[in-house]
Design a protein around this nucleic acid. Structure first.
Lengths: 210, 210, 210, 210
DNA sequence: AATGAATGAGCATTCATTCAT
DNA sequence: TATGAATGAATGCTCATTCAT
């Protein structure tokens, strides 16, 4: 029982450290963030951070992965109630952008992680990416099967969707004083969906709110 | 004449330093890049770098700006021969992605700069962004006036286009083993254009090559 | 107990660093002294110095303050056994000069600190100065009350005494091959005391040994 | 004739550089003063400074020597009209302190030079010192011969005088908000003179204005 | 002679990581 | 297991000095 208690405590501690790490990396970037400060904010000793994460880099990738997990959960939850495929795509897209809008520090870490790839995407991140792609592919296939969506190649369509959503989130810094991230994504996604939906795609359809 | 010679030489030297800086920042990122190494690669003394750029940060932003200038020139050149608006948009989009495909170190610096914004986009970068937006707005307005493009709001449309192109370039790392950057952009752009072009937007139109 | 041990050790370490810093600043001056060297001499790691002193400057002022503390202790001790005021003044003056004679590295740091003031005397130094003035004022007032010293304004008299002692210590470098610092101070102080003592101040009194 | 013109010009240029050097060394101290800045302020090219002074150190000692020359001229001029020895001593002392009061940048350089001695007084400075001592010795001997001053050992008396004046000038930073440098020197000098003048040295004599 | 661009040695400071307690 | 004192490699930046023009 002692072991369990201890395990649970450690689990909590690790999550606290990760949460503070996200904030620190968001604030200062990977290189400028200070492990000392993260430890202080997490309320643990300096060396303790190194008992949970071998290196600062491991801490960073764990923190970015936590962001991905939260993002994934948020997106999956958003589509749980959706019936139609188009509806699900819209909901997922809005959830994707909305998550970063609601958690700016996650966005900052997300951007930071993209820069830190330097050509080497960690396996965990690649797996997350694949899962997300799979999720969208399934929605699309469901939509195609149900006659809601034109029979496009699912993977390349998802890739294009990915560009739009990833782009909206990354590009948002240029328009943040004009519109919110979710509006940006809604708009761009709307235009894309207008082009792939079955039936006469009128201008109205493309530009009206999702 | 002495002055001119000297000025010309200094101009050249500065550009050499910037070129090597782009490579170094691409390779190691802003924080890990070593000014000493940049100096060596540029064939100048250490202190000389600091005669041309007050700080490493100034060097970094100058380098990223040089990337933007090259990118801008490449894009502008690509549309110089285009007649139609849709044609120009396709050409510009392909040039945008093609530039980063042909210059991976510029892409790396581009990504790095996005991460280093940390909420503060340098004025020079914002101005570049505005010019690019203006360029696309003019193309769109020309297309609308010529009846080639549906009467959408130009700015928000350009913003969506921006998301797609920016997104393709940033998102490319996830698909680089499946398709090239320009293919990715072509595909995503095609889907978007399919949705904004006048006339019945058929599935065929949206997915066929640009 | 663990805490105490650690605290005590750190206290010792800090004092060792300060002691070596005094030597280094004495040898090379503030600007030329190398923190690396101080660390080595103190037998601690480089970074350790910065755990105890935020900056080289803080280390310098701490070192100069340690000199003042030693000086103050030496002077106060010297007058503890004195009965008469004149006797105390003589003893204090000799202790003042004698301290620097016995600790040349303290003298060098003392001089260095005077140069580094640049118009801004650190609060701690000003406070030390005030305490010293107060000490001498009290001696003088005791001497005046006891009829041993003429009723001069204590503060301006102490200021003049300060000039003589400070001057002797600073001026000593010009005469060091002719007489020792304490002799110099004794001589100058003797002349000054000859002028303020009650009774006919004969030449003999002014120039004879204190 | 060309040569002469050139020589004269160089003479002027050198003095301009020295004058600006004094200001710079006074402002920032020897180590922190920037030769580049001195050159700019002097209105000459950077390298030109090095045509007139082999090293920064040589420039510094030349600058400090210029201070001494000005000081010496000021002091010598002050006593040119004095008849009596006591009168001359007072005048010289006041001129000494008054010079630094009127030229704070010279005082700063003077202090800086004391710190930079590090045990090695430059020959030129030692010679100046000797000349000053000689000047005062002659005044004293004249005073003794004329019966105005008691037959003290001239050299040790001058040394004590030196302590008082040097001390007043160096010590002034502690009392600058209470009295001016010249007042400080006047006061301290008055006390000392009260002690060495022939005749009954009353308290009044010692403390009344010079 | 005058200039100022070029140089690189030198140094303060930071911070990830280790390890004794 | 938790801690935080200790470490020293790493690096941005300065500035005295040189030398080609």
């Amino acid at each position: 029982m002692n072991g369990r208690k201890s395990e649970a405590r450690m689990q909590v501690k690790q999550e606290v450290i990760l949460a503070r790490a996200i904030e620190a990396f968001a604030e200062d970037g990977f290189r400028d963030a200070d492990v000392q400060v993260i430890a202080e904010k997490a309320g643990v000793g300096y060396g303790t951070v190194y008992r949970y994460f071998r290196t600062k880099e491991e801490l960073f990738w764990s923190a970015t992965y936590m962001v991905l997990e939260r993002l994934g959960a948020h997106v999956r939850e958003s589509i749980s109630q959706c019936r139609g495929a188009i509806e699900a795509l819209r909901a997922a897209g809005l959830a994707y952008a909305g998550f970063f809008e609601a958690n700016p520090e996650c966005l900052a870490v997300f951007v930071e992680s993209r820069a830190e790839f330097h050509g080497r995407i960690p396996a965990s991140h690649r797996e997350f990416h694949e899962k997300m792609v799979q999720l969208f592919v399934e929605i699309l296939e469901r939509g195609v099967a149900g006659g809601e969506i034109r029979p496009l190649d699912p993977r390349s369509t998802v890739t294009s969707l990915g560009c739009v959503l990833y782009g909206a989130v990354m590009f948002g810094c240029y328009v943040e004083d004009q519109c919110r991230l979710s509006e940006l994504a809604e708009q761009a996604l709307g235009m894309l969906l207008g082009g792939i939906r079955v039936g006469p795609s009128t201008g109205e359809a493309a530009s009206r709110p999702l």
